[in-house]
Nucleic acid binder design. Structure first.
Lengths: 251, 251
DNA sequence: CGCGCGATTGAAACAACTCAACTAGAGTGG
DNA sequence: CCACTCTAGTTGAGTTGTTTCAATCGCGCG
């Protein structure tokens, strides 16, 4: 534990998963040194830019989009909350190919690529954890892909809501069944492959069935078992196997 | 270079991306030590099992599936070819939750989790490369998600075919426009979110438009620009940025 | 030869889309 | 404090892409 607990959301996330000692805490704080805030509804990155440093979300929501040529519109490929690391998937690219957009006011920490190099060379345990974060992102994508490919609209939306709720609880544990939802129906549709109009109808259908309720710019999950039953969602981000990770240094 | 080049497909893949020296080659060969072959159409892993070691594909095709509850059927979440590393995404799980099925006869190398630990502790450069492989897998998923969420059947299928062709060329460079396709239409449908019957119609439609041709149990890409135009696919797996990776040791 | 699996094709049903009009609410300026 | 604007959400009617279900075909294999 450290008195800086509430200052570092990466710490909150890391400590959610593994035991951290004071030395780790020290490293984590260094990684979150370069901070900045941005207002809502700003495009922070565009395709083709050379901005490929990692970003750690301290506060707020962002989403990244991919323009889909050969058809109308775009696709929302990822949602990013407090504690998330943005850019792991694009680390192999010279230029990023997606856009990054703030949904709310956000606070971000820039993590230069060189820091990642340092991580691998001198902190294998934390490097392995970053590797694990990449793997978790992968699982999230895999689940969304299965949901979009195989579920109907109501189940897809239910899946998304459960996934968001589950992910939010990692850095804000103990919260209730309500969460703020700063994404427009259009953005939600772009994330799960529906049109805005149909997202609306589907929200209404879930409300009519008393599975969720919408109020105060957010979503309240009323019947979680019902939503799970509908969507087949089960929570897999809440525990990770550390057996393969380099051990903590023995004193 | 090494005289073992043709013996190690992980080497082929790694050397496709980064410069490897003799020491690296030595390590890679050790990783591929534990080999085994399996016949086609075998389920090698099931959900809930404790088989979570990494597998490196030396030869053949496999695919992994996720049972989608709350609805009919399953989803094919990934295709695995020669040179691929299976299991990176599930490294954080105590039990795997997907099935792994051979599409053809395959030859695999088992890579125990402990080796991964060793990789992080003593070979940061290779560890970073494994990290990069995870990131590439992530990009592949992201693209498939965008395709499934936003494209129509013909474009989705075109996207899948281009993606497969592009990935196959990494370990089998210089090949032509034809490749063997050992997946049934049902499996293809499960991968891109279509029914078997509609996959068939869509294949026919692509053939009628002279974009592809089907023969000899495989696919020939006739009009690649046309397919790219239709699907918006562009190849992003063929170059990786190494600037953030630990440097080779200086002699 | 006959079995069985996968591919092909047809017809009817339906989920989701398109397009368009309308409403609600939040913010702005006079 | 009201009128104006703008964005996001709501709703309806008609259309279409995809599914469903079923029947048929083709082919490799025992």
């Amino acid at each position: 534990m450290s008195q800086n607990e509430e200052q570092s959301c990466l710490y909150r996330k890391v400590s959610y998963y593994i035991d951290v000692d004071d030395e780790d805490v020290h490293h984590l704080e260094k990684l979150e040194a370069d901070r900045a805030t941005y207002p809502a509804r700003r495009r922070l990155r565009r395709p083709g830019e050379n901005e490929t440093d990692l970003l750690i979300v301290r506060r707020g929501w962002l989403y990244s989009t991919l323009e889909v040529e050969g058809s109308k519109g775009r696709h929302v490929q990822g949602l990013h909350f407090s504690g998330d690391i943005i850019g792991l998937a694009e680390i192999t690219l010279l230029n990023n190919h997606s856009s990054l957009i703030t949904a709310t006011d956000v606070e971000l920490c820039r993590l230069p690529r060189e820091s990642l190099c340092e991580l691998f060379e001198t902190m294998p345990r934390l490097a392995a954890l970053f590797f694990a974060f990449g793997a978790i992102e992968n699982m999230i994508l895999t689940e969304r892909l299965a949901a979009v490919a195989r579920l109907e609209a109501d189940a897809r939306l239910a899946h998304l809501l459960l996934q968001i709720h589950s992910r939010l609880r990692i850095t804000a544990p103990g919260g209730g069944m309500w969460f703020r939802m700063p994404l427009s129906q259009e953005v939600i549709g772009d994330a799960i492959g529906l049109t805005q109009a149909y997202v609306n109808r589907t929200f209404k259908a879930l409300e009519d069935r008393e599975l969720i309720r919408r109020h105060d710019n957010g979503i309240e999950l009323i019947d979680v078992p019902g939503l799970q039953d509908l969507s087949g969602f089960s929570d897999r981000y809440h525990e990770i196997d550390q057996s393969w990770m380099p051990a903590k240094k023995v004193l």
